[in-house]
Design a protein around this nucleic acid. Structure first.
Lengths: 183, 183
DNA sequence: ATAGAATCGGGGCGATCGTTCCGTTTAGCA
DNA sequence: TGCTAAACGGAACGATCGCCCCGATTCTAT
């Protein structure tokens, strides 16, 4: 995946930039100046642009990684309780969005269009949601007429609530759950 | 409210700027350049700054007006069915947010902090929500443990869904309603 | 150890945007 | 109609940001 045969200092700097950019995007969102990331990483802006041709490509690399983490985390958890898997996923994602503005923006389509720029990550994510939803419906915790697009919509709403309203959003989780339950 | 004794051309320009800014903020959000509004209004940027000392003050004037409209619209509708008033309000606001980025941002706290910059509008709005909520609870369509802050949180979530997911968000309205209903 | 290539850092360019300034125009009154 | 002050518009300023360039530095193969 990473280009082979990077010089030792280049590899070190690339890793450092990724790590710092990760934290910085999470804190500040896609609006952060590249210079700010360069400063925090202790490198020049030129160094960042040698590894990532544009700011957007750096942003994408990080979002892809973040999505992979969420998918993995969910796969580990979801095996246990089919009925709760989808809810655990939704609320976990809402929490993530609260401390990771970059992730929230990615879902809302700010800065990146996941479907076109990161098709594999997008597909993996969709498959995950499809599976969780089907299992929850089979277990009887979610109405039959909910589809994957509804789940996607819910994610956007939940992340917005969590981001802009903080922990007050937690109070709505049980109501969301009740709203999805079969009547 | 408006300063008295404006020269005729000044008054005409002020009104034109307000109208154009209203439309432009709705379409493009708080990010629009002032020059763009000036261009659309057929005036110079200087003219705008003579009437509104900063971009933010122009933005606030418009948000205040928008809030007043929503409050008025809701008051007209709400008298009829106490049980449905809150839901009509919520979904109306979601629709408004879909075509008015400025309003969405105002609720989410982007660009303005309503509570500190427009305290009277904020209070009027809060009173409206309090009344709608109490009436719905009395009518038995909303759980007793829902408070005004929860409603505010819901608004943020609903507007985000509507904005970023378009009409797909409509499918979730019935589920939101069900989620708020007493168990 | 050293040459040569890969990499580095940060100043600089061009674009954008909020805001100000000022020479010009125009409304309103006598 | 002529005078004055208010209002106009748009060029210009300063700050910000994405991205590029290039002289200086550091790595690595020999």
């Amino acid at each position: 995946m990473t280009d082979k045969r990077l010089r030792a200092d280049a590899a070190r700097n690339r890793a450092r930039v990724l790590r710092v950019a990760y934290e910085t995007f999470a804190e500040e969102g896609a609006g952060v100046p590249i210079d700010e990331i360069a400063r925090r990483a202790g490198v020049g802006a030129g160094t960042i642009y040698r590894h990532f041709p544009t700011k957007e490509s750096l942003f994408q690399a990080i979002v892809a990684d973040r999505l992979r983490q969420v998918v993995e985390h969910t796969r580990e958890q979801a095996a246990a309780d089919p009925g709760e898997g989808l809810f655990a996923f939704l609320f976990h994602l809402a929490e993530q969005g609260a401390t990771d503005l970059g992730l929230t923006e990615a879902f809302a389509g700010v800065g990146v269009d996941l479907a076109t720029s990161l098709p594999e990550a997008e597909r993996e994510f969709t498959d995950l949601m499809t599976g969780l939803l089907a299992r929850a419906q089979r277990a009887g915790t979610v109405r039959r007429d909910v589809d994957v697009d509804d789940v996607r919509t819910l994610i956007v709403g939940l992340q917005a609530m969590r981001r802009f309203r903080g922990e007050r959003a937690d109070r709505l989780y049980p109501m969301i759950r009740a709203g999805l339950a079969p009547r």
